[in-house]
């Protein structure tokens, strides 16, 4: 386990997530065309990174734990890569 740490970080991260959520909802009503998807995916990625780094405490971990976390990300990449291969090459 890591040292005791002021819960302020957690509160801050939580508030950050709520702010990003509000931003997602607001931007959904701004017509950006294809940009809407890009923006909301980008915000989603930031949110996931916040959760991983702060709530899952990955920023305090090393070695094996990061390898496993990276594996999760890599596998998600496989899903998106081979999945979109179908969508992008359909005739």
């Amino acid at each position: 386990m890591t040292d005791w740490r002021p819960p302020l970080v957690l509160v801050g991260a939580w508030l950050g997530l709520l702010a990003l959520l509000a931003l997602t909802v607001t931007l959904a009503y701004v017509p950006l065309g294809a940009g809407n998807a890009v923006v909301s995916l980008a915000i989603g990625t930031i949110k996931a990174a916040l959760v991983a780094a702060i709530f899952m405490e990955l920023r305090h971990r090393g070695g094996l734990t990061l390898v496993f976390a990276g594996a999760g990300l890599f596998w998600l990449g496989i899903l998106l890569w081979l999945g979109s291969m179908d969508f992008l090459t359909r005739t």
């Binding site: 596998w75 496989i78 081979l82 291969m85 179908d86 969508f87 992008l88 090459t89 359909r90 005739t91």
Partner: peptide
Amino acid sequence: GFLVWGHHMFVSGQSLVASLVF
């Protein structure tokens, strides 16, 4: 084992490229 799932979808209408790769 994670790279082959599309072999369950050969007749589903997925793209030919995808079918070949899977």
